[in-house]
Design a binder for these strands. Structure first.
Length: 894
DNA sequence: CTTACAACGTA
DNA sequence: CGTACGTTGTAAGC
């Protein structure tokens, strides 16, 4: 029977999907007036409606776990043992969800002693036998084993539940490199942390798949365990019982006794009036409307508006339109028509070769155009005009293309959206860093790629600029719709205007003196050699001082020193441990080693900077706008955000950073104590706010409060302690950490924290509240609406959870500082341009900006920079900016 | 040749 | 047992 004629059985793992929805949707947007949480129910039903519309199932059931206990926990009590208590906010939603399903006439199933997945397995087997096409929806990877020609798995991606990835056998092979029935063998070898199943040490997905290729299945692998060499082979022999147990536990049961027949699962028409009372009680207005639409037009809705959210099957994924090569008047006419057809913007992608534009692709939703570019070519002049106009453009990873445009002598305006930046705002932790990733995650499609095994790519087999432009355009509404309102504002007002600013800064670069670096490098090299020789003399042999492994032999075997803190591969030899050792077991080798580390580290930085000096005598770093999950920018190739400043030798590196010949000096401007100010603002702590408004030395003021003395009587030691405490707060510092840093005992550190929080109680309340709120929402948010998800806050693993708690604590603070700096950069750049000033912004180092000052502009520049930076945000405390000027970066410091 | 890790520079 | 990054060299597996 052709597939299309088969009845379709849809079976959903209710718990798994509702749980995903629970964490995907903010609970505070889904709470009824009387306080009932509904996010899990809403998310689940929303997904269900999409499935009904898109898949047209003829038969339908939702399976639930009856309890956590099952035959698996009887065999292995630790099964799923790492899972924490189910949040009560979730638990309460399950009965309501079941009630809603019942009202919709959908069968719910559960079976004592089995998990929902076993019910899925059983129905899949029965459905297949009876000639059904089966669709399973589950967030449990174990269900991959059920996939076959008749059974397809829809798996929610990390995004939530509104987007489902479709696994048929081919998709499983593509994703995992194995056939579906092999998946449990892989999982058995690798282990599954969420089920608390430990696998074979050192065996990851790659190794497991390789073994399967060699020996067929787990049984074969274990039979040939003796042939596998190396540590992993030994681990396999030692731990084979883990794999065998895992395999027993992850085999889903396909013959659970269920007291339903498939016939009885036939989809019944939904009666709106049956559903209405409950939906109204749950305040599901839009869901009710959607449901009503679905009931009115059951089949026609299949390819309707909702299709963007649930993926269409791979075979019917839309294809990029064939591109047309246009020039001259025809191009002009096409552009005129296209900008009207796509008022939100056209997709645009540039072909860049050796830094300059050599072609372009422009797309509407159903057409695309390609151009080969020659800057002097009249034939593409209409494109250049459109590019320079404010007509809206949508790009992916625009920064590099903007640089190429500038280098090619072209102008660009109207960049309204960079889908890469938008995608990052949506999922700042994750690593979709290319158009292909975005297409995969947000459209559920594959960006066509040339087959890498072909030496000469097939004509048209991979995507060029017109295809990139077309995919970019299609991504735009998907990512924009997914962004919360506040984040959308952040994107439009902060991130997008920053893109061209960063491009300009990268193009400008900064002058660095090659001779100065060369001299410094030689000197550091000599010093390192001498220190190495002295170190070798102390231990009577030469070792590689850069090898932690060899150092461990020297320290703990040869010199018999006490073991330090453990690392994954032994015992640490880091600087703080060496200093501790020097105190307990003084030895000249330690001193030489530490100094050698300093010298080689510094030389390495000098060398890499020197190598990065371009033909124009300047270093052009790249900024990663989507670098950090907190919102900060990163710098790479080379990293100019970690140039030493704390030691004299380090500062010599900064002296090599100069102004260019057309300029008279460098100016640096930094926000003083911006993170503490943000903490004062967010916590509203009256003491801290007063401290900043007083305008006197912050740490002195705080020290006076904490130690109960007059500000003038705060000793340097007291100030140091309080300063460390204040800064540590924003990082989730513990009493243990504080005592270690200040080298004071635990009791004193605890006392210090206690005193601090007694005087600045609102700070403590705020920090505590951040984590609590994040646990509820699943994310933190900065002052300007930047969100960062924290799924691990509910992790049953204490280490993971506490790490997440500290990161969550820090995120709104570090992230708000990043927001403010980004706003400041955009406004400063705009102000300099509007005043027609020649001075220009070169670098940013998180809370510092560095400018090149043109003749006669020193005073004006300082005023503009101070003013724009200080007014970038309106907080409860002033933003203080300190400025310095000088011939080089070091002299310009203050 | 690629990948993981330890170590360390900055804010 | 303090957050966020990027870079480097070594070691180990390929």
């Amino acid at each position: 029977m052709p597939d299309a004629d088969k009845p379709t059985l849809l079976v959903i793992d209710g718990h798994s999907l509702a749980f995903r929805a629970f964490y995907a949707l903010p609970v505070d947007s889904f709470t009824t007036r009387d306080g009932q949480h509904t996010n899990a129910i809403h998310g689940f039903l929303s997904m269900l409606l999409l499935l009904l519309a898109n898949e047209n199932p003829t038969h339908l059931a939702v399976a639930f776990d009856m309890s956590r206990a099952s035959f698996r926990t009887r065999e292995y009590p630790e099964y799923k043992g790492t899972r924490g208590e189910t949040p009560v906010e979730f638990k309460g939603q399950v009965p309501l969800l079941q009630e809603a399903l019942q009202a919709m006439g959908i069968t719910t199933l559960e079976k004592e002693d089995f998990e929902a997945d076993d019910i899925l397995a059983t129905l899949a087997a029965r459905g297949r036998a009876d000639g059904y096409r089966v669709l399973l929806v589950s967030g449990d990877r174990d269900t991959i084993q059920l996939v076959n020609d008749d059974v397809t798995l829809l798996y929610p991606n990390t995004q939530g539940v509104s987007q489902l990835k479709r696994y048929d056998p081919a998709a499983v092979v593509e994703r995992y490199g194995i056939r579906p029935e092999q998946y449990p063998d892989v999982a058995a070898l690798v282990g599954e942390s969420s089920d608390n199943l430990i696998g074979i040490s050192k065996v990851g997905e790659k190794t497991a798949v390789k073994w399967l290729g060699l020996y067929g299945d787990l049984e074969g692998i274990l039979a040939h365990a003796d042939e596998i060499k190396g540590v992993v082979g030994q681990n396999l022999r030692d731990q084979r019982e883990n794999a065998e147990r895992n395999r027993r536990l992850n085999r889903l049961v396909t013959d659970v006794e269920l007291d339903v027949q498939l016939d009885s699962l036939a989809a019944k028409p939904i009666v709106i009036d049956e559903v209405r009372p409950l939906f109204e009680r749950l305040e599901f207005r839009t869901l009710l409307e959607r449901l009503a639409k679905l009931v009115d037009a059951p089949a026609a809705g299949a390819a309707g508006a909702a299709s963007a959210e649930v993926e269409a099957p791979a075979v019917s994924a839309p294809q990029a339109p064939a591109s047309q090569a246009l020039t001259g008047d025809v191009l002009a006419e096409w552009l005129e028509r296209a900008v009207v057809a796509e008022p939100a913007g056209l997709g645009l992608s540039l072909d860049v070769l050796e830094g300059v534009v050599i072609g372009a692709g422009i797309a509407t939703s159903d057409e695309s155009v390609r151009l080969s570019w020659r800057a002097d070519d009249e034939a593409v002049a209409p494109f250049a005009r459109w590019l320079a106009s404010a007509s809206p453009k949508i790009m992916t990873d625009a920064k590099g293309q903007l640089k190429a445009i500038a280098r090619s002598g072209l102008e660009v305006d109207g960049l309204v959206l960079d889908t890469l930046v938008a995608g990052w705002l949506l999922r700042p932790n994750l690593t979709e860093r290319s158009l292909a990733d975005l297409v995969d995650v947000h459209l559920g499609e594959k960006l066509p790629q040339a087959d890498p095994s072909l030496l000469v790519p097939e004509e048209g087999s991979d995507a060029g600029a017109p295809e990139y432009a077309w995919y970019t355009l299609r991504l735009a509404p998907v990512v924009l719709r997914a962004l919360p309102e506040s984040t959308r504002t952040l994107l439009a007002d902060v991130e997008m205007p920053l893109v061209p600013v960063l491009a300009a800064m990268e193009l400008r670069g900064v002058t660095v003196d090659h001779g100065e670096l060369g001299a410094l490098s030689a000197e550091l090299g000599d010093r390192a050699a001498a220190l190495a020789a002295a170190a070798y003399a102390e231990i009577g042999r030469e070792v590689n001082l850069g090898s932690p492994k060899q150092l461990q032999e020297v320290l703990f075997d040869q010199l018999a020193m006490p073991k330090t803190r453990a690392t994954k591969t032994g015992y640490t030899t880091d600087a703080s441990a060496l200093v501790d050792l020097q105190e307990s077991n003084p030895h000249p080798f330690l001193g030489y080693l530490l100094e050698h580390r300093d010298a080689t580290k510094l030389r390495q930085i000098v060398e890499s900077l020197d190598k990065a000096i371009a033909a124009d005598g300047r270093i052009h770093t790249s900024y990663g706008q989507i670098g950090a999950a907190t919102g900060r920018m990163s710098s790479n190739d080379p990293n100019l955000q970690n140039i030493p400043t704390r030691t004299e030798d380090g500062r010599r590196i900064r002296k090599a950073f100069r102004h260019g010949t057309e300029y008279v000096e460098l100016l640096t401007a930094d926000y003083s104590q911006i993170e503490m100010r943000i903490m004062a603002h967010l916590s509203g702590d009256p003491g801290l706010i007063e401290a900043f408004n007083e305008g006197e030395d912050l740490h002195r003021f705080v020290g006076a409060r904490v130690f109960g003395v007059d500000p003038v009587d705060v000793t340097p030691l007291m100030r140091t302690k309080v300063k460390a405490m204040s800064y540590g707060l924003a990082y989730g510092l513990s009493a243990f950490g504080l005592s270690k840093q200040l080298r004071i005992d635990r009791a004193e550190a605890t006392q210090l924290m206690k005193e601090y929080f007694e005087r600045f109680g609102a700070v403590r309340d705020y920090l505590r509240g951040v984590v609590e709120q994040a646990r509820i929402d699943g994310y933190t948010e900065t002052i300007f609406g930047r969100r960062r998800p924290f799924p691990d806050l509910t992790s049953p693993n204490r280490v993971h959870r506490e790490n997440a708690e500290r990161a969550a604590l820090n995120s709104p603070i570090q992230g708000s500082a990043a927001d403010i700096m980004k706003i400041a950069m955009t406004t400063v750049e705009a102000e300099l341009a509007s005043r027609g000033m020649a001075s220009r912004m070169l670098l940013t180092v998180h809370d510092e900006l560095i400018f090149e000052v043109a003749e006669g502009e020193s005073e004006t520049l300082e005023t503009v920079v101070r003013d724009r930076m200080a007014s970038a945000a309106d907080l409860l405390v002033p933003l203080d900016v300190s400025v310095g000027r000088g011939r080089d970066w070091e002299h310009a410091a203050h």
